[in-house]
Design a protein around this nucleic acid. Sequence first.
DNA 1: CTAAAACCTGACGCTAGCGTCAGAGGCAAG
DNA 2: CTTGCCTCTGACGCTAGCGTCAGGTTTTAG
Lengths: 125, 125
Amino acid sequence: MTVTVAAAERLIRIGEVARGAGVSVRAVRYYEQQGLLIAERSPSGQRLYRQDAIPLVRFFQQMFAAGLTSRRIAELLPCWDSGHTDAEQRAMLRAERERIQAKIDDLQAALDHLDEVIAVTDTHP
Amino acid sequence: MTVTVAAAERLIRIGEVARGAGVSVRAVRYYEQQGLLIAERSPSGQRLYRQDAIPLVRFFQQMFAAGLTSRRIAELLPCWDSGHTDAEQRAMLRAERERIQAKIDDLQAALDHLDEVIAVTDTHP
DNA sequence: CTAAAACCTGACGCTAGCGTCAGAGGCAAG
DNA sequence: CTTGCCTCTGACGCTAGCGTCAGGTTTTAG
């Protein structure tokens, strides 16, 4: 039988978050400034994060790569922070989904185009 | 039997290029500044383009969307302007191809991630 | 205790693909 | 000839996600 004793999670500092997520310390501070990642503060003022900040930062990176702005991500954060979502947020989720899908299609077209060129330049150098 | 009489192609001005390709006039001038699109000049100094400038500009847009810089595009232009390509250019083509493919994979992962969130927020609003 | 490493708050810099404004000339129509 | 649209050359502005330096405090290793 296992008992959960409200294990006081070990808090980590900004450097560990940055290394863990593969980004710069500056980037993590920037995310806070944009309202994406709220940190506790130690008595001396240092930022303290829970360990799930690391996958969260990775997720931000993924969304950035998908073309979302930090503002958009901030607006959508409630969708998986809490389970609560309103109609507007769900609509935004769908809209972003469509944007990403369209972007994938564009990239695939560009890839096909490049592949044609590669084929030509290979057989006909 | 058909005879090609070196038909003096009708040259078009910058506005027609821009409208035809769906970009701004400013963008077309920018492409020239970056060495992507060389235009003839009328006696009064106006830019004159051949009609294939329109698909060419569309192609630039596609490459920009795929994350290529104007410098890269300029370096790769010989690959389909002429049929001539050297080993370095073919390597660059392949490298860009891989970059785009990796980007597509990233986007697909982001899309899957978003779809999960959408599924959750739909069944559990 | 001390030196190194990590952290803090500003604040300016950078890139890339244009947008935009200023001021001046070109061109077909009426 | 003039009205109105198109084009020209600079040249500064903008956005977004950080990089980077300055100057100072804090934490950690030995």
